[in-house]
Amino acid sequence: MTSSRNQILGNIRRGLQRDLLTGDALDQVRTRLREHPANTVPARSQLPQDQQIALFESMANEAAAELIELKTLEALPGTVAEFCRENGIDQLVSASDPALTALDWSGIDNLEITHRVAQAGDSASLTTSFCGIAETGTLMLLSGPHSPTTLNFLPDTHLVLLKQSQIVGAYEEAWARLRQHSDAMPRTVNMITGPSRSADIEQKLQMGAHGPKRLIILLLRD
């Protein structure tokens, strides 16, 4: 008895009226995988970097993400604490990313800060990001030892640090950076454009479905 796998593949080859790919045809598909050529990249994001940053900001705003400007990285703890005070948040789950833990949090007394994965009932999380994509105002986040994926989805409010030097134009540039960053894919790559939403009740858009109700981008002018 042939396995289901072989039957399915056999059916496909019969339909294509050929056997296993060989010769030039095989070279061609192998090259495609190795060289991963880009398809048409929309012109919209192919801009000088300052304009890419402006495009990122306006597209992220359009997707209902909120932007807070950081002049320096050192200003992050104070800015986060102030945001939380204004919004009645007294507990923050933070990623253990050295970029965050190395900062001076000692003066912050209105927040209980923990470093762990997220749990149901968490009100806010703080993470870093891998890059920002100007084309649609999208954040790219990678899972890893210091960036558990649950932080991006369970809490009601998600605060994300993005340096403006991390902003690229199109998705293709983000893939290029990802390939440079590591040989293997992380378990999870999240592309996030604004907070969670649903239009499943009468096609009327409501914000805050199962993921975060608010997405705050802390944009560092580096």
């Binding site: 597209m59 359009e62 997707a63 762990r116 994965v117 084309e135 649609t136 105002g137 999208t138 899972s143 890893g144 030892p145 558990p148 994926t149 649950t150 293997a184 894919m185 992380p186 378990r187 999870t188 790559v189 999240n190 592309m191 996030i192 454009t193 604004g194 907070p195 969670s196 939403r197 239009a199 993921g211």
Partner: peptide
């Protein structure tokens, strides 16, 4: 589909969690 510029969450999954990952 929805006339959105991009859907809110586009998520790639590759294999199970890595040994050093905290969740997944």
């Amino acid at each position: 589909a929805t006339g959105q510029e991009f859907t809110v969450y586009n998520t790639l999954s590759s294999g199970p969690r890595r040994p050093e990952d905290q969740d997944g």
